[in-house]
Design a protein around this nucleic acid. Structure first.
Lengths: 227, 227
DNA sequence: TACGAGCAACTTACATCGTACGAGACCGCA
DNA sequence: TGCGGTCTCGTACGATGTAAGTTGCTCGTA
């Protein structure tokens, strides 16, 4: 049950170094971004690295651990906000960053559901989200609640978005929409009408609308919580 | 790429009927609720049903298809709101229902990330979410945006909650919190302080706070969108 | 120069998985 | 008595994660 993050990689003061935890994680990230978690196998990863499958297990205890490391690598790409920014623009910008991570690494959101994110980069990110809220005068609990609320929205949105993106391009209806519409036209005309509305597939706008809603809701509370 | 829902189960006007799509789905749901998607195997499911593994494949084309059927079964449990309810209480109640589904079937949220939800029950649910918003005078696109926003929040919240719930009970800190706190105490004291705040682990309250935020944000827009 | 210690990579092997394929078993109807 | 459809099962293949043990390398030390 112990996380990879609780113990360092194998000591390693040796020499060979054709393989390394960093190299493995890097290549695994490539393959995850390209084909997702299901398609990544230790054997294919090893082949890609020109190594035997079991060689990876010297540097990484298990496949799940490797994925946890890759997840944390994603959080490492998260751009930290300016240290003196006001909470609202800072929060808004961080949530855009979060969504961009989700678009760049489509397997990320699914990973959230299966693994705990307690790596150093994940914690640094969470910490930096807390900071502007605390500086605005919120209590620890209130800051945590606010951050949790917006990032729940963003991850939930990304979860749906990753699903659409998986079948077909961005900002356009999925290819099998016609069949779905035919199936449900008599029973759920409202629903089918929605499917045929192009505005529904403009995900950028949907995200912006939702983010505005959530931040507005928080803004109304910040004043009260601060006093 | 065709969904299970585009074609009916095998014809079946025969006799044996020791096995059936319904029985298989029912038992699969039990096992999914108990142990999650990773642990469900066609072999174990067949054993549980007292059948040979390959027998299942007469009633169900594939394991993924079976999971899609189970997912839709979950949506079938969603209680539809009163047909004349005001949009705000209706939406609020539906989102509570959604969260209860997530707590009852912890694998559900992860399933959203991997499968499209276009089964009859999923569509009926989506349709019933749209209805109160449209009745309040919103356009199709505006109604869809509003619903998408709140349900993104709920699924994102459920995603995190399912993860906590997987390791330890509800409304209490995870067992390995001590180790995590020790790891990051010097580098991210703010974060560790948050982890130690009991209010952070009261998920019920967190959910309520977030839902209030999001619905408030939407409420502010409903007036404008309606005119 | 010789040698053991530990690091790193490899080989082999096993259990488990989804499922393709085809052979039966049973039925109602001709 | 046969036939075609409906269901169940047995066998088998390829892929997967990884436990266990083996081999060779480079050291520090004697």
């Amino acid at each position: 049950m112990d996380s990879v993050f609780f113990s360092k990689p194998r000591p390693g003061s040796g020499q060979p170094l054709g393989l390394s935890r960093e190299a493995i994680v890097r290549k695994a990230m490539e393959m995850l971004d390209a084909h997702g978690m299901q398609k990544l196998s230790m054997r294919k990863l090893a082949a890609e690295l020109g190594a035997a499958p079991m060689s990876l297990y010297w540097h990484v205890p298990t496949k799940d651990a490797l994925i946890e490391l890759c997840l944390d690598e994603i959080y490492g790409e998260f751009p930290l906000p300016a240290p003196d920014a006001d909470w609202e623009p800072a929060l808004r910008e961080m949530m855009h960053s979060l969504r961009h991570l989700a678009l760049k690494h489509p397997w990320w959101v699914r990973g959230i559901g299966e693994f705990n994110s307690i790596g150093p980069n994940a914690v640094a990110m969470a910490d930096s989200m807390l900071e502007p809220m605390l500086r605005a005068g919120l209590s620890t609990a209130a800051a945590a609640q606010s951050v949790s609320t917006v990032s729940s929205f963003v991850t939930g949105f990304a979860l749906a978005e990753a699903n659409f993106a998986a079948r077909g391009g961005m900002d356009e209806p999925p290819p099998d929409l016609g069949k779905i519409a035919d199936l449900y036209r008599e029973k759920h005309p409202r629903y089918v009408e929605m499917l045929n509305d192009p505005a529904v597939w403009m995900l950028e706008g949907q995200f912006e609308f939702g983010l505005d809603c959530v931040i507005d809701g928080i803004k109304a509370r910040v004043a009260a919580l601060r006093s």
